[in-house]
Amino acid sequence: MALLEVKDLGVRFTRRDASPVDAVQRVSFTLEKGKTLGIVGESGSGKSQTVMALLGLLPGNGLASGEALYAGRNLLTLSQRELNQIRGDRIGMVFQDPMTSLNPFLTVERQMTEALQLHRGVSRREARQKAIEALQRVWIPDAARRIDRYPHEFSGGMRQRVTIATALLTEPEILIADEPTTALDVTVQAQIIELLRELNRDLGTAIILITHDMGVVAGLADDVMVMYAGRTVERAGAQALFENPTHPYTRGLLDALPRIDDSDGTHDIDAPLRTIAGNPPAPGEAIEGCAFAPRCALAKERCHSTRPELEAIAGEKDGWRACLRPVGEMMEVVR
């Protein structure tokens, strides 16, 4: 049975002038126990808002619709009190920027033990001991001493490891990581990815990983959901998606990855970097057809007027795409 089942999730913001903006529309996915789901998309594609909605962290003018079933309960309709029993306990979260996601005025110990004291009712001393162990698990050297330090005495990579350790203290079933590596430099990124993989393997924590970095997804995810302008454009197993992307946008994202080697002889490593021309639609812009159509090399007239719905990809297990053009045409045109 699925651990988390999201059906037709929508997030609507109301602007000051009362006009609505749909940040997320009709997003559905399931997360199985111990699996990793990568949500990919560019800035403003609604990937962060999707998980914020799940945890009830939308700003005051945001409203979530649809259903998000966790342990038989709809997260979207829970009261603040009920939600507080789940978040931080069964569902942990790691934020993008470890420089700002730790409270600068509290020692690391105070911030780490908060969740344990809150959800487990353990004593401060016991919580502290567990926190030290958690820090050791994320390779913080000299954890027993460092735990009494303030966040500003840690480096960026260490802070992110602290936030991950904090989120894992209560041994949650789901860890949501919102661009956990974006604010870090490349070598530290690799460490964090490795750490997440290890935790996923050793503790069986299911992970929802939000990122705009295809490389990060490739290294970690079992399933991938690609979002564009608040909608899912493609959802498939990671391997299938990388080997055979069936949506022009996914294809464009993969082609935009810089290549540094040409081991299989198919890439011209001296060629200029590829981009996807144009910009995503502005939030709140009325779109009649496919949101990606204006930037799509494959777009036909119909794409501008008819909105594609998410449909199962023929011959692909658990593969879904939202595109009016047949899968077979993907290969030839974009290359």
Binding site: L83, F95, T100, A115, H119
Partner: peptide
Amino acid sequence: EFIDAARATGVSTPGIILRHIVP
């Protein structure tokens, strides 16, 4: 973000005000 982080940890509103905002 650390306020969001506190909310995501399940800290109640009075708890956030007292432990995270006031300091």
